[in-house]
């Protein structure tokens, strides 16, 4: 349990670390340039990791099912990620990593709650209270 908690915390730290490193790169190039490097090095790392796992008996780079069955809209994850990474690098240089993280988390949670509602999830009291607290937080962090 403690190991899992550390991994979960670590995953969040890595998100912010990546944003900070990309902001540094964007200072010497551009936010979009940093996003390009981010995706290219991440792609290379995943290909190497996938191939290595395949070499020791894992599934490797081969998809488990059929990628042809992936709906067209789901391929938009990449371009959305380009916007997300470029925006992160751009915002950190302007308002700092703290407010950037706060507002990106707020946007992610509000967007996720909206998507859940659109998918027919019940708008429970807990969730609506959560949305209200986040909106208050955004208001507090404004300007």
């Amino acid at each position: 349990m403690i190991a899992a908690a550390l991994m979960a915390l670590g995953a969040g730290v890595l998100v912010a670390l990546s944003r900070q490193v990309n902001a540094r790169l964007a200072l010497g190039s551009s936010a979009l340039g940093a996003s390009l490097w981010n995706h290219a090095t991440g792609l290379a790392a995943l290909v190497v990791a996938g191939a290595a796992l395949g070499a020791v008996g894992g599934a490797g780079l081969r998809p488990q099912g059929s990628l042809g069955a992936v709906p067209v809209w789901a391929w938009a994850g990449g371009p959305l990620g380009v916007v997300f990474v470029a925006a992160g690098a751009w915002c950190v240089a302007r308002i700092g990593a703290g407010p950037t993280a706060t507002l990106m988390i707020a946007g992610q949670m509000l967007g996720g709650a909206a998507l859940d509602l659109a998918a027919g999830a019940a708008g429970t009291g807990w969730r609506l209270t959560g949305v209200g607290l986040i909106l208050l937080g955004v208001a507090a962090a404004r300007r």
Partner: peptide, 22 residues
């Protein structure tokens, strides 16, 4: 920049949905 950060967070929610489907 605050508005951009908030909207980019919303992009991430959509991205998570896309990637989970893949």
């Amino acid at each position: 920049p605050r508005t951009v950060a908030l909207l980019a967070g919303g992009c991430l929610a959509l991205m998570v949905l896309c990637n989970a489907e893949v």
